[in-house]
Design a protein around this nucleic acid. Structure first.
Length: 260
DNA sequence: ATGCCTGGCGATGCCAGA
């Protein structure tokens, strides 16, 4: 089972890039972030025509997440628990049943948090506390589970081409990285780092200042796997070349395969 | 030190992104 995550930076602006990638990468499941669309405006037929079931959790203008899946999506839940007043669409989860295992799939778009300090950074840290609580509950369920998406977290210096430039940034502040580590330390495996070590691996390049041409990137899109899910992982890769195409997102897809 | 580029909204520049 191939499961991909992709921050597409606007589904309507990315119809060409998104369908081209889907047709060639052929993921069984795609977790999408930043659809920037309300549910009624999501071009679901485009994906249904390709054999995908579609579940969205959108809002007007910003944010928004979706799941495309060739397998039926069961027990779909929208919104990260823990704050009923939070109106930002950043979390969706569902269960898929593979040949040998059912897997709980969570798609997330973690808040950016800039500028820090400030209310946006407070919201980011509070959101990460709620994420930790949900992560604990997923472990307690014992079903193989993963949480994938745009974490807006640079975990280590090696995950940025120029880490010095990020020292005051909400993506890399010590408190941000500590909150990310607390979730890993519950027992989650960061899929990419379980397979690939060393610097030079990125998932985002800014549109500005020639970041792509200079390979001035950061690695902020991640898959976190529960122990039962990590046991099933066979591959984890980043589709870097997607960033060089026409009218690209500023993020590229990351994917895992599971023996599920 | 700041903007660089892009999408969305909606009609004009501004906000948000990272």
């Amino acid at each position: 089972m191939k499961i991909a995550s992709f921050n597409i930076n606007g589904v309507k602006a990315r119809i060409g890039a998104l369908t081209e990638w889907l047709d060639e990468a052929q993921p069984d499941v795609a977790l999408l972030q930043e659809i920037k669309s309300v549910d009624e405006g999501f071009p679901r037929e485009l994906f249904e025509d390709r054999g995908y079931n579609v579940e969205t959790h959108g809002q007007k203008g910003f944010n928004g997440v979706a799941i495309l899946s060739k397998l039926p999506l069961e027990d779909v839940r929208r919104g990260l628990p823990g704050d009923d007043s939070d109106e930002q669409a950043r979390w969706i989860e569902a269960t898929v049943v593979g040949d040998s295992h059912a897997v709980r799939l969570c798609g997330l778009y973690l808040p950016n948090g800039n500028p820090a300090p400030g209310p946006k950074y407070d919201y980011k840290l509070a959101w990460m506390e709620r994420l930790e609580a949900r992560a604990r509950a997923l472990l307690a369920d014992e079903m193989p589970a993963l949480m994938a998406g745009d974490y807006n977290v640079i975990p280590q210096a090696e995950d940025a081409a120029n880490p010095k430039a990020w020292e005051e940034d909400a993506l890399y502040l010590p408190q941000t990285r500590a909150a990310f580590r607390r979730i890993l330390n519950l027992g989650f495996t960061e899929a990419f780092r379980a397979r690939t070590q060393g610097p030079g691996h990125y998932s985002f390049w800014d549109y500005q200042a020639g970041a792509w041409n200079k390979n001035n990137g950061i690695r902020i899109d991640h898959f976190l796997l529960s122990p039962a899910c990590a046991d099933l992982m066979t591959h984890c890769e980043i589709d870097k070349e997607v960033r060089a195409r026409e009218k690209p997102s500023d993020h590229v897809p990351i994917w895992v395969t599971l023996a599920a």
